[in-house]
């Protein structure tokens, strides 16, 4: 009896020692979570109601909802929202469909040297953003590779980087170059589709198109959904490539005035941290709403293998 109790207490003693170890391992991350994530978020929420400016001669004051109201009257803000929406409508579909297309080919049974092709299509994804910017600024310029190619076919090459109408297609073209991650994920998803399903479909007389739309697409829907969501969220924060393509400016007629560039300028050029905070919080709220909508759609349309949610 006494022995039993003794053993039990020793056991719970070990458990609490274990817990202390556990907390010790988690401590750095927990501290970081507070210092580098939670506090800054709250801090910027508070700042969004102030006129806080890093230029010292602007007196600090709480200004209520003034920043939030000026979001709606700020033409730059409206423009950057439109640019982001254009990105989502024009560029994102390319960023999903072309990796899908490539993954289908790479995964196709007759293809030889699969491993080599995976490597080759992944290589551009490893190129630093600054280099991607330099390469494509050259390729898209007048007399660059792309326009030379178009002219060699006998067509008139658009002014990719100086015609506002061609800015988004240009950005889509550059984006298409770095789709390695998505290709890899889609190939992995394709490999996970059980072969028996295709065989069964073949016996039932389904053609390739039917088995693609009825088997492949539904079974890939979780990966497709994840990548669509990620591409849209990323679209709201698209920065480096357009910053480099347009030399840190908003492009012709502000057609590449992406949201992040607007916040970046407000914060670093005008040092207007209050308004910059308001803009980032507004964007976070928009992203949250869009993700919420996407997740609702997800619950309705997306199939997860081994899912126990009913």
């Amino acid at each position: 009896m006494t022995r039993d109790i003794k053993q039990k207490s020793r056991y719970s003693g070990l458990e609490s020692v274990d817990r202390r170890w556990g907390w010790a391992f988690l401590a750095p991350w927990l501290i970081g979570l507070v210092v580098f994530t939670a506090f800054p978020m709250l801090f910027s929420l508070v700042l969004s109601f102030t006129n806080y400016n890093l230029v010292p001669d602007v007196p600090f004051a709480f200004i209520g909802f003034k920043n939030w109201i000026s979001l709606f009257s700020d033409p730059g803000m409206r423009q950057s929202f439109l640019v982001t929406m254009r990105y989502i409508l024009i560029v994102v579909p390319f960023l999903i469909l072309s990796p899908l297309f490539l993954a289908l080919f790479i995964n196709a049974k007759p293809l030889l040297l699969k491993g080599l092709f995976i490597t080759l299509f992944f290589l551009p994804t490893l190129v630093p953003g600054i280099v991607t910017g330099i390469i494509w600024q050259g390729s898209l310029s007048n007399g660059g590779t792309i326009s030379r190619f178009i002219k060699s076919v006998g067509l008139e090459s658009p002014m990719w980087l100086s015609d506002a109408n061609w800015v988004m297609p240009a950005i889509a073209l550059v984006g298409l170059w770095s789709i390695g991650n998505t290709i890899l994920q889609m190939i992995a998803a394709l490999k996970n589709v059980p072969k028996e399903l295709y065989e069964a479909a073949l016996i039932d007389g389904a053609n390739a198109f039917v088995s693609f739309t009825r088997i492949t697409l539904p079974l890939m829907s979780s990966v497709l959904f994840f990548n669509i969501t990620a591409a849209i969220i990323y679209g709201f924060q698209y920065f480096t490539i357009s910053f480099l393509l347009f030399n840190g400016q908003g492009g012709p007629n502000d057609s590449a005035l992406f949201f992040m560039l607007k916040v970046f300028k407000e914060a670093l050029v005008y040092r207007n941290m209050g308004y910059a905070s308001t803009m980032s919080w507004a964007m976070l709220l928009i992203i949250l709403i869009i993700t919420q909508i996407l997740f609702t759609l997800n619950r309705r349309f997306v199939y997860y293998a081994g899912d126990d949610r009913k």
Binding site: D18, F43, S44, L47, Q237, F259, V263, S280, M283
Partner: peptide
Amino acid sequence: FNLPGKDLMLLLVTITFMLPPIILFVPQYI
């Protein structure tokens, strides 16, 4: 380690990497 609040912490890990960096750059810069 079987710590209390483990699931919540795992959720927080997921949130931190889904969290758009845009929300952090202004206050972190300050």
